[in-house]
Simulated scan of single mutants.
Amino acid sequence: MNIAILGKGTVGSGVDQIISEQNTAFTNQLKVVSIFVRPEKVDGSPKLTADYASILNNPDIDLIVEVLGGIEPAHTMIIDALKHGKSVVTANKAVVARHIQEFTKIAAENQVKFYFESSVGGGIPWIINLERALRIDKIDSIHGIFNGTSNFILDQMTKTGAKFDEVLKEAQDLGYAEADPSADIDGYDIENKLCISTDIAYDTIVEPGDHLLKFGIRNITHNDIQYFKEHGWIVKLLGRSFLKNNRYTFVIEPTLYSPGQIEAGVHNNYNYVGLRGDTIGKLSFNGQGAGMLPTAHALVQDILDVYLKNDHLDRKFNQKLELNNETKIMDYIVRTKADLNHYLPDYELKQDGEYWFVKQINTKLIHETVQQIALTGDKPFLACINGGAENDRS
């Protein structure tokens, strides 16, 4: 099978390396014949080209690997590839989260494949196992640590006592975080990955956007970490969704776990993702959620599935569901200089300095309350206590 790669960055180089160097009976059937790069990157290598049309119009190229990132031009280039009868595999969670239904439909119309295993969880075989579970079970919950950068930051702050800014710089120096870390620390990366996961799990479309509840770790402090440790908790940034009776919850928020719980033991830049099904029960996966070779490994697995004609689960994404975060009742801690009695007069509150314990409140209301407080100039922090899909109510 002849392959073209769109992009020669970290992951694109990893795909090329695995196909070139992993001498197995499977990888030996693959060959990278073209790599699309910006014009200034063309250096005379026979593989490199800035002419995408030459790839589209080459009948010998069977499959395209898209690792450009971002929405455009990736969106247009994927559509063009599918319409030219070429299968596509991608690690681009942003474009998949927004166009999964469109890509899947166009691929089917042109009798090619569109696979995206590495868009969620990097090297973790998450999507394929979610699809396998769905062949038998109805999945009613998805939750996990979907972002390795935020997990690295929280883990290092917990282990070393370092301040947020210090650990963020370390993550940037190690290549875990971008110069603009917003996607990682504000929950947008998790949003894309949780949207893709829920799309598949519930056979619906969950569009990324401001209507989805997100509270990241930008405001966390060294004192917050110490306070949680004193109370026997470890904080993680979780993405979580629960489905019942055509209603689903969707929330991204810091969550507190006891040291013995699985989530608390996910260290460094690792990811942890899980589901719950009718017969399989709770099933979870832990591993490298990013990085050159783990992500490239997942891409090559998708390539091999296309080559070996291993079909993935067919989803129509046509279930009509209602987003309702008011059905999710949990306990929270809010750190704020504000008087929370003013904002939540009808709830049971316990104050400990700047930390407020809020009993049995719905997720939407607590997020909206903290957003109101942030508008006053305060930098509040919230965390769900021992959150998990098993605690969801409706």
Rank of each mutant, 00 (worst) to 15 (best):
M1D: 03
N2Q: 10
I3E: 04
I5Q: 07
D16A: 14
D16G: 06
I18C: 02
L30R: 00
L30A: 00
V32D: 01
I35V: 14
I35N: 09
I35G: 11
E40A: 13
P46I: 00
T49W: 11
N57Y: 05
A74D: 12
T76K: 09
L82P: 02
G85Y: 06
V88D: 01
V88L: 05
V89G: 02
T90N: 04
A94K: 09
R98S: 09
Q101Y: 09
A107L: 02
V112W: 00
F114Y: 00
G122R: 07
I128P: 05
R135E: 15
K138P: 10
I139D: 00
G144E: 03
G144P: 02
N147Q: 11
N147R: 06
T149P: 03
I153P: 00
D155F: 05
Q156W: 00
M157T: 03
T160M: 02
A162D: 04
K163Y: 03
F164C: 02
E170V: 01
E170W: 01
G175S: 09
A179H: 04
I185H: 14
I185T: 01
I190S: 14
L194C: 10
C195S: 12
I196F: 06
D203H: 08
D203S: 09
E207F: 12
H211A: 07
F215Q: 12
N219L: 02
N223Q: 10
I225D: 00
Q226M: 08
Y227E: 15
K229M: 12
G232S: 06
I234R: 04
S241M: 10
S241C: 06
F242T: 01
F250I: 01
Y257C: 11
G260M: 10
I262S: 14
E263A: 11
N269R: 08
N269S: 14
N271S: 12
G274T: 00
I280R: 13
G287W: 03
Q288A: 11
A298R: 07
L299C: 06
L304P: 01
D305S: 12
Y307M: 10
K309C: 10
N310Q: 14
D314Q: 13
D314P: 03
F317Q: 06
N318P: 12
L323M: 08
N324G: 05
T327W: 10
K328S: 15
I329M: 13
I333W: 09
N341T: 15
D346W: 08
Q351S: 14
Y355I: 13
W356T: 07
V358I: 15
V358A: 10
K359D: 13
K364S: 15
K364L: 15
H367E: 14
H367M: 13
I373Y: 00
L375W: 01
G387R: 06
G388C: 07
